[in-house]
């Protein structure tokens, strides 16, 4: 299963980026193969408009089964994400990616 985190950095110890549309990176963890990969989304900071839909397009290409983030996607991004068969967990801000993963495993994250 592929799990994507909105991340402010590129390592397991990086903090969760609470924003969906304007997250700098996605850290993608495959818990079957234990592979970790990083997707750079930092180009989005040049976008005055439509960051949410642009990032939604990006996550569609990653096709994770689970998305873990902070505030949750905005309205436009949420509309786009409905097209994906993906579970979204929110309120993981102020956690490292590792902590967020552990909390997710223990069922402590709120699902959207």
């Amino acid at each position: 299963m592929k799990i994507a985190f909105t991340a402010a950095g590129t390592t397991w110890e990086s903090m969760i980026d609470p924003r969906f549309g304007r997250t700098e990176f996605f850290i993608v963890y495959n818990d079957e193969t234990q592979e970790v990969s990083v997707v750079d989304n930092s180009a989005v900071k040049n976008e005055a408009h439509g960051a949410g839909t642009a990032t939604a397009q990006k996550i569609f290409e990653i096709k994770p089964d689970v998305l873990i983030t902070g505030n949750g996607p905005g309205e436009n991004a949420a509309t786009a994400l409905k097209q994906l068969n993906m579970k979204i967990f929110v309120n993981a801000h102020n956690m490292t990616i590792k902590e967020a993963y552990e909390n997710y495993k223990n069922g402590k994250l709120q699902s959207l």
Binding site: H49, G50, T53, A56, Q57, A80, L84
Partner: peptide, 8 residues
Amino acid sequence: YHAVIQLG
């Protein structure tokens, strides 16, 4: 403006 996006 990312007002038109393609999802699959």
